[in-house]
Protein backbone atom coordinates (compact mmCIF):
# COMPACT_ATOMS: atom_id res chain seq x y z
CA UNK A 1 0.00 0.00 0.00
CA UNK A 2 0.95 3.60 -0.49
CA UNK A 3 -0.35 4.73 2.90
CA UNK A 4 3.04 5.19 4.50
CA UNK A 5 4.12 7.82 1.98
CA UNK A 6 0.85 9.32 0.78
CA UNK A 7 1.15 13.11 0.76
CA UNK A 8 -2.09 13.66 2.69
CA UNK A 9 -1.09 11.61 5.71
CA UNK A 10 2.53 12.73 5.67
CA UNK A 11 1.33 16.33 5.54
CA UNK A 12 -1.08 15.83 8.41
CA UNK A 13 1.60 14.12 10.51
CA UNK A 14 4.02 16.97 9.85
CA UNK A 15 1.39 19.55 10.77
CA UNK A 16 0.62 17.81 14.07
CA UNK A 17 4.32 17.52 14.82
CA UNK A 18 4.89 21.20 14.05
CA UNK A 19 1.97 22.32 16.21
CA UNK A 20 2.86 20.22 19.26
CA UNK A 21 6.61 20.47 18.91
CA UNK A 22 7.03 23.41 21.39
CA UNK A 23 5.38 21.32 24.13
CA UNK A 24 8.43 19.10 24.25
CA UNK A 25 11.25 21.27 22.98
CA UNK A 26 13.73 23.61 24.63
CA UNK A 27 13.76 27.32 23.69
CA UNK A 28 16.85 26.64 21.57
CA UNK A 29 14.94 24.12 19.47
CA UNK A 30 11.81 26.26 19.36
CA UNK A 31 13.50 29.46 18.19
CA UNK A 32 16.88 28.64 16.72
CA UNK A 33 15.69 25.56 14.85
CA UNK A 34 11.90 25.90 14.61
CA UNK A 35 11.35 29.60 14.01
CA UNK A 36 14.52 30.15 12.03
CA UNK A 37 13.71 27.22 9.74
CA UNK A 38 10.32 28.76 9.04
CA UNK A 39 11.89 32.17 8.29
CA UNK A 40 14.54 30.77 5.96
CA UNK A 41 11.87 28.53 4.44
CA UNK A 42 9.62 31.50 3.69
CA UNK A 43 12.42 33.38 1.93
CA UNK A 44 13.40 30.24 0.01
CA UNK A 45 9.70 29.70 -0.79
CA UNK A 46 9.73 32.96 -2.74
CA UNK A 47 12.59 31.55 -4.81
CA UNK A 48 10.89 28.18 -5.31
CA UNK A 49 7.76 30.00 -6.50
CA UNK A 50 9.84 31.90 -9.06
CA UNK A 51 12.18 29.10 -10.08
CA UNK A 52 10.00 26.01 -9.73
CA UNK A 53 6.86 27.45 -11.30
CA UNK A 54 8.28 30.29 -13.36
CA UNK A 55 11.67 28.92 -14.38
CA UNK A 56 13.25 32.14 -13.12
CA UNK A 57 16.15 31.81 -10.68
CA UNK A 58 16.47 35.05 -8.75
CA UNK A 59 19.45 35.73 -6.51
CA UNK A 60 17.76 38.87 -5.20
CA UNK A 61 15.23 37.20 -2.88
CA UNK A 62 17.33 37.62 0.25
CA UNK A 63 17.94 41.32 -0.33
CA UNK A 64 14.21 41.74 -0.99
CA UNK A 65 13.65 40.30 2.48
CA UNK A 66 16.54 42.48 3.68
CA UNK A 67 14.85 45.63 2.41
CA UNK A 68 11.73 44.69 4.37
CA UNK A 69 13.93 44.18 7.46
CA UNK A 70 15.48 47.62 7.01
CA UNK A 71 12.04 49.22 6.60
CA UNK A 72 10.88 47.56 9.84
CA UNK A 73 13.98 48.98 11.57
CA UNK A 74 13.88 52.45 10.07
CA UNK A 75 10.16 53.02 10.64
CA UNK A 76 9.98 51.26 14.00
CA UNK A 77 11.54 51.00 17.41
CA UNK A 78 15.32 50.61 17.39
CA UNK A 79 18.24 51.79 19.45
CA UNK A 80 19.59 54.68 17.35
CA UNK A 81 17.64 57.83 18.32
CA UNK A 82 19.19 59.91 15.52
CA UNK A 83 17.61 57.95 12.71
CA UNK A 84 14.22 56.85 11.45
CA UNK A 85 10.61 57.28 12.41
CA UNK A 86 8.69 55.54 15.16
CA UNK A 87 5.54 54.44 13.38
CA UNK A 88 2.95 52.15 14.99
CA UNK A 89 3.99 48.57 14.33
CA UNK A 90 0.93 47.70 12.25
CA UNK A 91 1.69 50.49 9.79
CA UNK A 92 5.34 49.57 9.94
CA UNK A 93 4.67 46.00 8.78
CA UNK A 94 2.37 47.12 5.99
CA UNK A 95 5.06 49.53 4.82
CA UNK A 96 7.76 46.82 4.95
CA UNK A 97 5.69 44.32 2.96
CA UNK A 98 4.71 46.99 0.43
CA UNK A 99 8.37 47.96 0.02
CA UNK A 100 9.39 44.32 -0.50
CA UNK A 101 6.63 43.78 -3.06
CA UNK A 102 7.56 46.96 -4.93
CA UNK A 103 11.22 45.95 -4.87
CA UNK A 104 10.26 42.54 -6.25
CA UNK A 105 8.37 44.20 -9.10
CA UNK A 106 11.35 46.47 -9.78
CA UNK A 107 13.73 43.49 -9.91
CA UNK A 108 11.25 41.78 -12.21
CA UNK A 109 11.13 44.78 -14.54
CA UNK A 110 14.92 44.77 -14.78
CA UNK A 111 15.31 41.00 -15.17
CA UNK A 112 12.23 40.18 -17.23
CA UNK A 113 13.92 40.11 -20.62
CA UNK A 114 16.66 37.75 -19.46
CA UNK A 115 16.48 33.98 -19.36
CA UNK A 116 18.49 31.29 -17.61
CA UNK A 117 22.01 32.13 -16.56
CA UNK A 118 21.56 35.78 -17.58
CA UNK A 119 18.70 36.20 -15.16
CA UNK A 120 20.85 34.69 -12.39
CA UNK A 121 23.64 37.12 -13.23
CA UNK A 122 21.49 40.23 -13.33
CA UNK A 123 19.71 39.40 -10.07
CA UNK A 124 23.05 38.57 -8.46
CA UNK A 125 24.29 41.99 -9.57
CA UNK A 126 21.25 43.55 -7.89
CA UNK A 127 21.98 41.61 -4.69
CA UNK A 128 25.63 42.68 -4.64
CA UNK A 129 24.64 46.28 -5.40
CA UNK A 130 22.15 46.24 -2.55
CA UNK A 131 24.80 45.01 -0.12
CA UNK A 132 27.22 47.82 -1.01
CA UNK A 133 24.46 50.40 -0.94
CA UNK A 134 23.48 49.23 2.54
CA UNK A 135 27.09 49.42 3.68
CA UNK A 136 27.73 52.92 2.36
CA UNK A 137 24.42 54.73 2.75
CA UNK A 138 24.05 56.57 6.08
CA UNK A 139 20.64 58.19 5.67
CA UNK A 140 18.49 55.09 5.39
CA UNK A 141 20.70 52.05 6.03
CA UNK A 142 22.94 53.53 8.75
CA UNK A 143 25.93 52.11 6.88
CA UNK A 144 28.21 49.67 8.75
CA UNK A 145 26.24 49.83 11.97
CA UNK A 146 22.81 49.03 10.67
CA UNK A 147 20.05 48.95 13.26
CA UNK A 148 19.83 47.19 16.60
CA UNK A 149 17.33 46.78 19.38
CA UNK A 150 14.44 45.90 17.10
CA UNK A 151 11.72 44.02 18.87
CA UNK A 152 8.69 42.06 17.83
CA UNK A 153 5.54 43.83 19.07
CA UNK A 154 3.24 42.85 21.88
CA UNK A 155 -0.15 41.82 20.60
CA UNK A 156 -3.11 41.79 23.03
CA UNK A 157 -0.77 41.31 25.94
CA UNK A 158 1.06 38.50 24.16
CA UNK A 159 4.71 39.31 23.61
CA UNK A 160 5.68 37.97 20.21
CA UNK A 161 9.28 38.16 21.37
CA UNK A 162 8.82 35.12 23.62
CA UNK A 163 9.93 31.83 22.07
CA UNK A 164 6.59 30.03 21.89
CA UNK A 165 4.42 32.90 20.54
CA UNK A 166 7.16 33.81 18.06
CA UNK A 167 7.42 30.21 16.90
CA UNK A 168 3.68 30.04 16.33
CA UNK A 169 3.76 33.35 14.46
CA UNK A 170 6.46 32.00 12.13
CA UNK A 171 4.62 28.69 11.77
CA UNK A 172 1.37 30.48 10.90
CA UNK A 173 3.09 32.65 8.30
CA UNK A 174 4.98 29.69 6.85
CA UNK A 175 1.92 27.47 6.54
CA UNK A 176 -0.24 30.29 5.15
CA UNK A 177 2.30 31.24 2.51
CA UNK A 178 2.93 27.59 1.65
CA UNK A 179 -0.83 27.09 1.22
CA UNK A 180 -1.03 30.28 -0.81
CA UNK A 181 1.68 29.11 -3.22
CA UNK A 182 0.18 25.64 -3.58
CA UNK A 183 -3.26 27.12 -4.28
CA UNK A 184 -1.88 29.81 -6.59
CA UNK A 185 -0.25 27.15 -8.76
CA UNK A 186 -3.73 25.94 -9.79
CA UNK A 187 -5.11 29.38 -10.68
CA UNK A 188 -4.97 31.04 -14.13
CA UNK A 189 -1.94 33.09 -13.06
CA UNK A 190 -0.07 30.10 -11.61
CA UNK A 191 -0.77 27.82 -14.55
CA UNK A 192 0.20 30.56 -16.98
CA UNK A 193 3.46 30.99 -15.09
CA UNK A 194 4.20 27.26 -15.44
CA UNK A 195 3.27 27.49 -19.10
CA UNK A 196 5.75 30.33 -19.53
CA UNK A 197 8.41 28.22 -17.83
CA UNK A 198 7.74 25.39 -20.30
CA UNK A 199 7.40 27.49 -23.44
CA UNK A 200 7.23 31.30 -23.50
CA UNK A 201 6.71 31.48 -27.24
CA UNK A 202 3.79 29.11 -27.08
CA UNK A 203 2.22 31.20 -24.32
CA UNK A 204 2.43 34.31 -26.48
CA UNK A 205 0.57 32.62 -29.27
CA UNK A 206 -2.05 31.49 -26.75
CA UNK A 207 -2.80 35.13 -25.94
CA UNK A 208 -0.55 35.73 -22.91
CA UNK A 209 1.66 38.72 -22.31
CA UNK A 210 4.72 36.87 -21.08
CA UNK A 211 6.56 39.90 -19.70
CA UNK A 212 3.60 41.05 -17.59
CA UNK A 213 3.17 37.59 -16.10
CA UNK A 214 6.82 37.35 -15.20
CA UNK A 215 6.84 40.77 -13.51
CA UNK A 216 3.70 39.91 -11.52
CA UNK A 217 5.37 36.65 -10.43
CA UNK A 218 8.33 38.69 -9.19
CA UNK A 219 5.94 40.97 -7.30
CA UNK A 220 4.36 37.98 -5.54
CA UNK A 221 7.81 36.60 -4.76
CA UNK A 222 8.71 40.00 -3.30
CA UNK A 223 5.61 39.88 -1.11
CA UNK A 224 6.52 36.42 0.23
CA UNK A 225 10.16 37.35 0.80
CA UNK A 226 9.14 40.59 2.57
CA UNK A 227 7.11 38.65 5.14
CA UNK A 228 10.18 36.51 5.69
CA UNK A 229 12.21 39.71 6.08
CA UNK A 230 9.90 41.12 8.76
CA UNK A 231 10.11 37.89 10.76
CA UNK A 232 13.85 37.71 10.24
CA UNK A 233 14.52 41.15 11.71
CA UNK A 234 12.28 40.36 14.69
CA UNK A 235 14.17 37.12 15.15
CA UNK A 236 17.63 38.68 14.97
CA UNK A 237 16.73 41.98 16.66
CA UNK A 238 19.08 43.74 14.30
CA UNK A 239 19.81 44.26 10.65
CA UNK A 240 23.11 45.30 9.13
CA UNK A 241 25.00 44.90 5.85
CA UNK A 242 26.11 41.49 7.15
CA UNK A 243 22.49 40.28 7.01
CA UNK A 244 22.23 41.07 3.31
CA UNK A 245 25.63 39.82 2.15
CA UNK A 246 26.17 37.73 -0.93
CA UNK A 247 26.86 34.68 1.24
CA UNK A 248 23.34 34.82 2.65
CA UNK A 249 21.88 35.24 -0.83
CA UNK A 250 23.69 32.11 -1.93
CA UNK A 251 22.43 30.29 1.17
CA UNK A 252 18.85 30.85 0.01
CA UNK A 253 19.69 29.28 -3.36
CA UNK A 254 21.36 26.37 -1.56
CA UNK A 255 18.28 25.84 0.61
CA UNK A 256 16.08 25.71 -2.49
CA UNK A 257 18.41 23.22 -4.19
CA UNK A 258 18.77 21.03 -1.08
CA UNK A 259 15.01 20.80 -0.63
CA UNK A 260 14.16 20.74 -4.32
CA UNK A 261 12.21 23.19 -6.44
CA UNK A 262 9.64 20.82 -7.87
CA UNK A 263 7.29 21.48 -4.95
CA UNK A 264 6.95 24.41 -2.51
CA UNK A 265 7.54 22.09 0.45
CA UNK A 266 11.13 21.81 -0.78
CA UNK A 267 11.82 25.31 0.55
CA UNK A 268 11.03 24.24 4.12
CA UNK A 269 12.68 20.83 3.89
CA UNK A 270 15.82 22.51 2.56
CA UNK A 271 15.67 25.18 5.26
CA UNK A 272 15.44 22.56 7.99
CA UNK A 273 18.39 20.60 6.65
CA UNK A 274 20.47 23.74 6.15
CA UNK A 275 19.63 25.04 9.59
CA UNK A 276 20.45 21.73 11.27
CA UNK A 277 23.79 21.56 9.49
CA UNK A 278 24.54 25.16 10.37
CA UNK A 279 23.80 24.58 14.03
CA UNK A 280 25.31 21.16 14.50
CA UNK A 281 28.24 21.14 12.13
CA UNK A 282 30.18 22.55 15.07
CA UNK A 283 29.65 19.28 16.95
CA UNK A 284 31.19 17.21 14.18
CA UNK A 285 33.84 19.48 12.79
CA UNK A 286 35.31 22.88 13.32
CA UNK A 287 32.90 25.83 13.10
CA UNK A 288 35.06 27.25 10.34
CA UNK A 289 34.47 24.14 8.29
CA UNK A 290 30.73 24.72 7.96
CA UNK A 291 31.10 25.92 4.40
CA UNK A 292 33.11 22.86 3.44
CA UNK A 293 30.49 20.59 4.90
CA UNK A 294 27.47 22.31 3.36
CA UNK A 295 29.37 22.45 0.08
CA UNK A 296 29.96 18.71 0.06
CA UNK A 297 26.34 17.99 0.92
CA UNK A 298 25.18 20.36 -1.81
CA UNK A 299 27.45 18.67 -4.31
CA UNK A 300 26.14 15.25 -3.34
CA UNK A 301 22.55 16.41 -3.72
CA UNK A 302 23.17 17.98 -7.12
CA UNK A 303 24.97 14.85 -8.33
CA UNK A 304 22.72 12.15 -6.91
CA UNK A 305 19.30 13.77 -6.57
CA UNK A 306 18.97 16.72 -8.93
CA UNK A 307 15.45 17.53 -7.76
CA UNK A 308 16.51 17.73 -4.12
CA UNK A 309 15.11 15.85 -1.14
CA UNK A 310 11.56 16.35 -2.41
CA UNK A 311 12.55 14.71 -5.67
CA UNK A 312 13.97 11.77 -3.75
CA UNK A 313 10.72 11.29 -1.84
CA UNK A 314 8.77 11.52 -5.11
CA UNK A 315 10.94 8.83 -6.62
CA UNK A 316 10.53 6.53 -3.62
CA UNK A 317 6.78 7.02 -3.74
CA UNK A 318 6.67 6.16 -7.43
CA UNK A 319 8.64 2.96 -6.86
CA UNK A 320 6.30 2.13 -4.02
CA UNK A 321 3.26 2.62 -6.22
CA UNK A 322 4.54 0.80 -9.26
CA UNK A 323 4.06 -2.57 -7.59
CA UNK A 324 0.33 -2.46 -6.96
CA UNK A 325 -0.91 -0.45 -9.90
CA UNK A 326 -2.45 -2.19 -12.89
CA UNK A 327 -0.71 -1.54 -16.19
CA UNK A 328 -2.09 1.35 -18.22
CA UNK A 329 -4.57 0.31 -20.87
CA UNK A 330 -4.63 3.37 -23.07
CA UNK A 331 -2.21 4.17 -25.85
CA UNK A 332 0.91 2.27 -24.89
CA UNK A 333 4.07 3.92 -26.06
CA UNK A 334 7.70 3.73 -25.26
CA UNK A 335 7.92 7.07 -23.51
CA UNK A 336 5.91 5.97 -20.49
CA UNK A 337 8.81 4.50 -18.64
CA UNK A 338 11.05 7.48 -19.25
CA UNK A 339 8.98 10.66 -19.18
CA UNK A 340 12.13 12.78 -19.25
CA UNK A 341 12.84 11.93 -22.87
CA UNK A 342 11.29 14.61 -24.99
CA UNK A 343 9.30 13.36 -27.91
CA UNK A 344 8.27 14.89 -31.14
CA UNK A 345 11.43 16.52 -32.36
CA UNK A 346 10.69 15.50 -35.90
CA UNK A 347 11.66 18.01 -38.54
Amino acid sequence: MTGSLSPKWTGLACLVALVFFPWFATPFWIVQIGAQTMILGIIALSLVWLAGYGGMVSMAQLVTAGLASYVVAYFGVQSDPALGFRLPWGLNIVLAIAAGTAFGIAVGLIAVRCFGIYMIMITLAIAVGFFYLARQNMGFFNAYNGFHGIRAPTLLGLSLRDPIPFYYLCLLCGISLFGFVVAAARTPLGLALQGIRDNPRRMQSLGYNVAVHRVVAFGIAGFIAAIGGVLRVWYAGSVSPGSVGVGSSISILMIAILGGMTHPIGAFVGALLFNLIQNFAIDFIDRERFNTMIGIILLAIILFMPSGLVGLVDRLRQDDRRGDRPPRQTAPNASQQSPKIKEGNHP
Partner: peptide, 16 residues
Amino acid sequence: YVAVRGIRGGRLQLWR
Protein backbone atom coordinates in the same frame (compact mmCIF):
# COMPACT_ATOMS: atom_id res chain seq x y z
CA TYR B 1 -7.29 25.32 -19.57
CA VAL B 2 -4.41 27.71 -20.24
CA ALA B 3 -5.47 27.94 -23.89
CA VAL B 4 -9.10 28.66 -22.93
CA ARG B 5 -8.06 31.30 -20.38
CA GLY B 6 -5.73 32.92 -22.87
CA ILE B 7 -8.73 33.75 -25.03
CA ARG B 8 -11.28 34.45 -22.31
CA GLY B 9 -9.20 36.85 -20.24
CA GLY B 10 -8.61 36.91 -16.49
CA ARG B 11 -5.11 35.72 -17.27
CA LEU B 12 -3.64 37.29 -14.15
CA GLN B 13 -6.29 36.04 -11.76
CA LEU B 14 -5.25 34.31 -8.56
CA TRP B 15 -8.59 32.55 -8.46
CA ARG B 16 -10.47 30.42 -10.95
